[in-house]
């Protein structure tokens, strides 16, 4: 875990900046520079709303190094309103009350405990949508 490795992802971790394909309009997160839909270049930055719905979820009881203190924690695949799926933790929620289809919104939280390098990594997690927009 080196500092540059996390620094260069700050636009993704803090602001959920992906890309949009100018050829076919597909919205991409994470950014990947080549559109998987049409194989054309896709360099145009696109900032996602951070809103979506739970596609699937799981509560983790056996964690890797750096995550033991969070156990049990709930991870999810979130279907963003703009299309892509994203992997992230759910926060401010009891694993028992999560269900598939639940509306969620992005927030910034601590992703892992301080490592041997003294680095704390922050980034997106999702919580239950506080205000249901009329739609």
């Amino acid at each position: 875990m080196s500092i540059p490795r996390h620094w260069r992802l700050q636009n993704q971790r803090y602001s959920m900046v992906g890309e949009v394909c100018n050829a076919c309009g597909a919205k991409l997160f994470p950014p990947r520079d080549v559109c998987p839909e049409c194989s054309k270049p896709a360099y145009e930055p696109y900032r996602f709303s951070g809103n979506g719905k739970v596609y699937s979820y799981s509560t983790v009881y056996q964690a890797p190094s750096g995550y033991e203190a969070f156990v049990p924690y709930t991870v999810a695949l979130v279907k963003l309103d703009e299309g892509p799926l994203v992997s992230a933790q759910l926060t401010d929620v009891d694993g028992e009350e999560v269900e598939i289809g639940m509306p969620v919104e992005m927030v910034t939280r601590k992703l892992r405990e301080e490592g041997e390098d003294g680095l704390i990594v922050y980034g997106y997690k999702f919580r239950r949508l506080l205000r249901e927009e009329a739609a």
Binding site: Y57, S58, V60, Q62, F70, V75, L77, S87, Q89, K125
Partner: peptide, 14 residues
């Protein structure tokens, strides 16, 4: 995936 605390088991659990 991994930075978000996903484990290999939890990816299959999803």
């Amino acid at each position: 995936e991994s930075i978000h605390g996903l484990t290999f088991v939890s990816i299959n659990a999803l």
